[in-house]
Simulated scan of single mutants.
Amino acid sequence: MKQAKNQLKKHLQVSVDGEERELKGAERAAVLLLALGEEHGEPIWRKLDDMEVRQISAAMANLGPVTPAMLEKLFIDFVRRLSSRGSLTGNVEATERLLSSFLPQDRVSIIMEEIRGPAGRNMWEKLSNVQENVLANYLKNEYPQTVAVVLSKIDSEHAARVLSILPEELALEVVSRMLRMDAVQKEVLEKVEQTLRIEFMSNLTNTSRRDSHEMMAEIFNNFDRQTEARFLAALEEENRESADRIKTLMFTFDDLLKLDAASCQTLLRSVEKDLLAVALKGSTDAAREFFFSNMSQRAAKLLLDDMEALGPVRLRDVDEAQTSMVNKAKDLAAKGDIMISKSKSDDQIIY
C-alpha cells in the first residue's frame, strides 16, 4: 500500500489541507490506476474498452487534489474488500455492483443482460439458443443481407426453423442472398454483432424468459460422468421429453467425434499431449480410433505408448481431461478456428 501511495504522489499534486470528499465510480478506478503507474497499470488499461478508457480518463483529468486521508480511505477499502474472509465470491449481484461503481448504467445493463441471456460463449451460440419465433420476429424488420449473415452463422437446424417463420417474400430473398454470399468481411461481421448486442440481446430478457432446459444443460455439462448419468437416468424415468431436450442441448466429449478432419486436427494441436493421453485412456474404442485416424501413424504410436505408460487412471482425472478438451473445442469454435455441431447433418459456417 505504501509503494502504491508513493507512486500516486508522483502523478497527483496532493493537498494536505485540501477539502476531503468521497471518491465515487470512475474516480476510484482512476486513482487506483494512477497508483499502479505505467508498468503495472498497462495490462489493466489494455483490457478496458473504448468507453471505459474514455470515462476513466475523463475522471482522471478532472480528479483534482486528493488528500492523504482520501487516499488512505480508498486503499483501506480496497484491501478490505479484497481480503474479506480470505477470498472473493463471484456472483451476478456482486458483478453488477462492481461494474456499476465505474461504468455508466446503460453499459452495465447491456453487459448484465448478456450474462443473464441465452447460453453460449459468443453471439452466434447465444442466437442459436434464442427461441426461433423471437429471433424471427426481430429479423423480419432487418435488411435481407443482414438476415442472411445471421442465418449463415447460427446452427443450421435453428436457422431452418427461423427461416420457415419469416414472411415468404423475405425468406426467399434471404435464401437467394445466402446462395450468392461470399466470405463476410470482419468489419461487417463486427458491425452486425454490435447491432445485435445493442438492439436485440440487451432487450431479450424483457420479452422472453431464458429456457430452463438451456440452464440445466449448462449445469449437466459441468457434472462429472457418474453424476450426469445418475441425474439423466432419474429424469428419464420422470420426464423423458425433458431429459431428451437437455441431452440435445449438451455438448459432450462424444460430440467431438462429429468434428470434421480439419477441425479435429486443429483441436489436437491445441491440446497438451499429457491431457490427451488421459482423456483417451478412459474413452471408448470409437473415440480412440477417431482421434488416431486424424494423426500421423508416428504420432498415434507415441500417444498409444504414453497411454500404456500411464497405468491405471482415476475416473475423475479422465472426466477432467475430457472436459478440458470440450472447453478447448468451444474456445476454438468461438474464435472461428474450428466448426462444431451437434449432428453430422449440420452445415454451420464460421468465418
Rank of each mutant, 00 (worst) to 15 (best):
K126S: 07
Q194E: 14
Q55F: 01
Q13I: 00
D244R: 13
L32E: 01
D260R: 08
L232W: 14
K2P: 06
D254T: 14
M123I: 15
D50S: 09
D317V: 06
L166Y: 01
A35S: 04
V271G: 03
G90C: 12
E187H: 14
V150F: 00
K73R: 09
M60Q: 01
V192H: 11
Q13S: 02
S101N: 05
L232E: 06
E22N: 11
I44Q: 03
S296D: 08
V184F: 12
V149A: 07
P144T: 09
R97N: 13
A261F: 05
S100V: 07
R245I: 13
A61Q: 03
K247F: 11
Q145M: 13
M216E: 13
K140L: 07
Y138D: 00
S176M: 14
L12Y: 03
G117L: 02
V79H: 13
L99S: 03
S101D: 08
E237Q: 15
E20V: 03
K247P: 09
T266A: 06
R46T: 12
D155S: 08
F223H: 12
T146I: 04
A30E: 00
Q322E: 14
L204K: 01
S100H: 05
L204W: 02
I246Q: 10
S343E: 15
A277F: 05
G64Q: 00
E132G: 02
L268W: 07
N294L: 11
T252I: 14
K258Y: 13
T95E: 11
T284L: 08
E320L: 09
D77K: 03
L33G: 00
E218Y: 09
M123H: 11
K344V: 14
I111Q: 04
G120K: 03
M201Q: 02
E132L: 00
R21K: 01
E20Y: 06
E42Y: 05
K24A: 03
F200T: 00
Q194S: 14
V53E: 03
A119W: 12
A217Y: 14
L48D: 01
V313L: 04
D306Q: 05
R298W: 00
M201H: 03
K328T: 05
M325A: 07
R121E: 12
S152V: 06
A29I: 00
P312M: 03
L275T: 02
R240S: 15
R107T: 06
D305R: 13
A148M: 09
R97G: 10
S242N: 14
K342W: 15
R177G: 06
E289L: 12
E114D: 10
L74I: 02
E114F: 06
S100Y: 06
V278I: 04
R209Q: 14
Y351M: 12
N239T: 13
R85Q: 09
F290H: 11
P68N: 04
I44V: 06
N294W: 13
R288S: 11
N129F: 13
F78C: 07
P118E: 07
D244A: 15
R209Y: 09
G41E: 00
L34D: 01
N91V: 09
K344M: 14
S202Q: 02
M215A: 13
S109M: 08
P312T: 07
K140Q: 04
S83F: 11
V108K: 04
D337H: 12
L232P: 10
Q145S: 09
L189Q: 11
V130N: 02
I338L: 08
R210D: 06
